[in-house]
Design a binder for these strands. Structure first.
Lengths: 137, 137
DNA sequence: GTAACTGCAAAATATTTGCATCCTT
DNA sequence: AAGGATGCAAATATTTTGCAGTTAC
C-alpha cells in the first residue's frame, strides 16, 4: 500500500484525491508548508476551502502540527517519526533558515528543559531556532 | 517625565494619544497582548487601523516584539528590561498559562543553547513553554 | 510650517459556514 | 446505502491602502 494511503487509513480518514495530494506534498518537502504553499504547489487543482478543511482534519488527527514562527506566519509540518510510529511527539526543535526561509523539523534535537521561576509548572515546550541551514551555508 | 513618554521619545516616535494609551496598556499588563485585547481594553476609543499602525511602528522600533504561540495567535509583548536598557534582547523564555491563557515574559529565564546537526548555524532561538502559571497553581 | 499621525472609507485578503452534489467505504 | 468529503456561493473577519484633516514638534 502506498505510504500516503497508509497514513490516512491509520488515522481513520477516507482516502480522497485532495488528501492524498496534500499528504504527498508534506512527504516530499522535508520542511514545513504554509497554507499558501499548498495552494500554489497543487496548481489550484482544488478549492481553497478544501485545503482549509484538509489541513484542519490533519491537525485534529495529529498527523501534522502547527509550527510557531517568529513572524507568526502559520506553518504546518508533518514529522516523519511521529507518523510512522503512530503516536505524536512533536517535542523537537524547529529550524527556520534566514536564507531560504525553509522550516525544517530537527527530529533528533529535543527541546531542552528549562528551570522556571517558583510557581510555574511546565507542561509543554516549543523551540524555534533561526539561522542558516545545511543547504545554504 | 512619564515613563510612557520617555519610551516613545527614546525611540524617536512622536508622543500621541493613541501611542501613549497603547504603551500604557503594555506597561500595565506584565503579559502579552493580542491585537484584539488592545482594541477591547481601550474601549474602542480609537480606530482599528490606528492600532495596527501603532503596533507596527512599535515593532519596527523594537519596543515590542511578536511572541510565537503554539496556536499561532499573534501576541505582542514589551519586555521591561529591554526597554529600560534601550537595547533589545528578547532571548528570554515566554510562558503561556493553559489555565488563564496569559502570556508572561520570563525575563530571567534565558533560552538555552541546543546542539544542532552538522551544517546548521544558529542565529536566534525562541522558546515558548505552556503550563500552569504562578497565579493559577 | 512641516512632517508625521489619525480616522474614515474602501479595497484586498483570509477564513468560515451552509448546502447541494459527489465519492468512499 | 450512508456518511463523509468536496466545491461553490456567500457571509465574516482580518489586514492594508489612500487620502483628507489634525496634531506634534
Amino acid at each position: 500500500m502506498k505510504q500516503v494511503e497508509e497514513i490516512l487509513k491509520k488515522n481513520h480518514l477516507s482516502v480522497t484525491g485532495s488528501r492524498q495530494k496534500i499528504m504527498q506534498l508534506f512527504l516530499n518537502s522535508n520542511g514545513a508548508l504554509a497554507h499558501a504553499d499548498i495552494e500554489k504547489k497543487t496548481g489550484e487543482s482544488f478549492d481553497r476551502v478544501t485545503v482549509y478543511r484538509t489541513l484542519q482534519s490533519f491537525v485534529e488527527k495529529g498527523i501534522i502540527h502547527l509550527i510557531p514562527t517568529r513572524d507568526n506566519s502559520i506553518k504546518y509540518a508533518l514529522c516523519k517519526d511521529d507518523c510512522e510510529a503512530g503516536h505524536h511527539h512533536d517535542n523537537h526543535v524547529h529550524f527556520i533558515c534566514d536564507e531560504c526561509s525553509k522550516t525544517i523539523c530537527l527530529d533528533d534535537v529535543t527541546v531542552p528543559q528549562v528551570k522556571l521561576p517558583k510557581g510555574f509548572t511546565p507542561q509543554h515546550a516549543e523551540m524555534v531556532v533561526n539561522g542558516i541551514c545545511e543547504e545554504c551555508k
